[in-house]
Simulated assay, not measured.
Amino acid sequence: MSFKPTVIGFTDAPDTGNPQAPTRLDGLVNPAPVRPVRATALPGTHVQASPTRLNVPAATTQEPQHVHASSLPGTQRKPLDVSYADLAKRFPGTEPLLLERTQLVLHAVTPQAMSSTGWLKFGVDRQEDLAALVKRRLEMMESNPGRATSQHLRRLHTLLREVLDAMDGGFFRKSASKVWESVEPEVRQLDALLHKAVPALSVFLGEMDSLKLEAQRVGASLFATSLAAEYLMDVVGPEVHQVLSARALSLTTSQALVREQQQMLELDKEQVQELATLVQDGVLVQLPSVYSQLAGLSAKTSDTQRYLAADKLNEIVQFIQRKI
């Protein structure tokens, strides 16, 4: 017969089913793992679930670290630092403003960073400016209002000459009054066109002045770039010297072209200016007196009236003939 031991501090302890389980004298039994018990809602009741709070550790904020670039040994790429005194010594007698332009061109050059393609393009942008200048001048001369004005003057000269020749008389010639009657409408029409041509010629002269200033700027830039190429040939290596020599020669040729354009612009301006003076201070001033003298022509015109009219006609005809 076995006796069940009495556990002090417990009443009706459940049988574990293990007769060998030791009995603790302190009244404590090894507890079994405790599982959470899910509450069961009874009908007619409302159970509010308690929120579950998770203890999440706060994120640690790290201070940004500054990365310092390390200096590696190598070739420094710096623009050329050429003083004005060096340029004045290299190119004696050159205008100060031109030397300053050359200095600016050199300061924009970094020889260590220049590739073969870069040296081949040295100064090409200035030559493109020259090409644009030549194109603009040709377009301007195509739209020159002086062309139409010259044609109007030639036609006016022809009509007035017909009237003047009719005054010389002759058996088979029409009378001067008849000739004047036939040409007067066209003469007055040409007079109106010439009046309109004067403002157009003035505007055109202003555009030519602007183009002349542009030609001066392009010429100065080409000259400065050419001097810069000559200076660079003294400081670069032999592998670049030949390319720069060819570029310097090309820039010198462009300088000759821009000087030619400047001369042609000056000549064009003089011609237009003379034409404007001819129309404004010559033809348009003399035509009213011609109208006055020819208005009284008739078959019974006296010799004195014919002489005065012929004198006025001859004066304006000779004046136009000398100018056109």
Rank of each mutant, 00 (worst) to 15 (best):
L87D: 00
R101D: 05
S245P: 02
T16S: 15
R247K: 12
V163A: 10
D12A: 09
R101G: 13
G296M: 12
L120F: 05
N30M: 02
E142Q: 12
Q189M: 11
E139Y: 03
S182F: 00
R77I: 11
H107M: 08
Q242Y: 10
A41T: 15
E184Y: 07
M1Y: 05
L194A: 04
A299F: 11
L267M: 03
K323D: 01
K4G: 06
K89S: 12
A299W: 09
M264F: 09
E274M: 10
P5W: 04
P33M: 02
E162D: 14
L153D: 03
D125S: 13
G27H: 08
H66R: 13
V109S: 03
Y291E: 10
G282T: 01
R77K: 14
G74Y: 03
D268L: 02
V29F: 07
T149A: 14
S254C: 00
A108M: 03
P79K: 09
A59Y: 00
A85S: 14
P79D: 09
S83K: 06
G282D: 06
Q76R: 15
E230A: 13
A132N: 10
A248M: 07
E207H: 10
A228N: 06
E214R: 12
E162A: 12
T158K: 07
F3T: 14
R147Q: 13
L97H: 08
R247A: 06
T60R: 13
L211E: 07
P199T: 01
E63F: 08
V258L: 05
K174A: 14
R259M: 08
H68R: 13
P19C: 03
N18C: 10
L278W: 00
E186C: 01
E214V: 07
V109P: 01
E260V: 04
F3L: 11
L297E: 00
V187M: 04
V240R: 15
P288C: 07
T60L: 13
G9D: 09
Q189P: 00
F172N: 11
H66Q: 12
K196G: 11
A85I: 04
G9W: 02
R161S: 15
A13G: 12
V285K: 14
L244M: 01
G206H: 10
V240T: 14
I324Y: 02
V236W: 07
K135V: 01
P238D: 08
Q62C: 01
A310K: 14
L251W: 04
P14N: 09
H107D: 00
T16E: 08
V56L: 14
S292I: 05
T6N: 07
M1Q: 09
V179F: 02
S202I: 01
L308V: 09
K212F: 11
L133A: 05
T94I: 02
M140D: 05
S71K: 13
S298E: 02
T225M: 08
P185Y: 04
T102W: 06
I320V: 15
V37Q: 15
Q318W: 04
L160S: 05
E214A: 10
T16F: 07
A310W: 01
R306E: 05
Q216N: 10
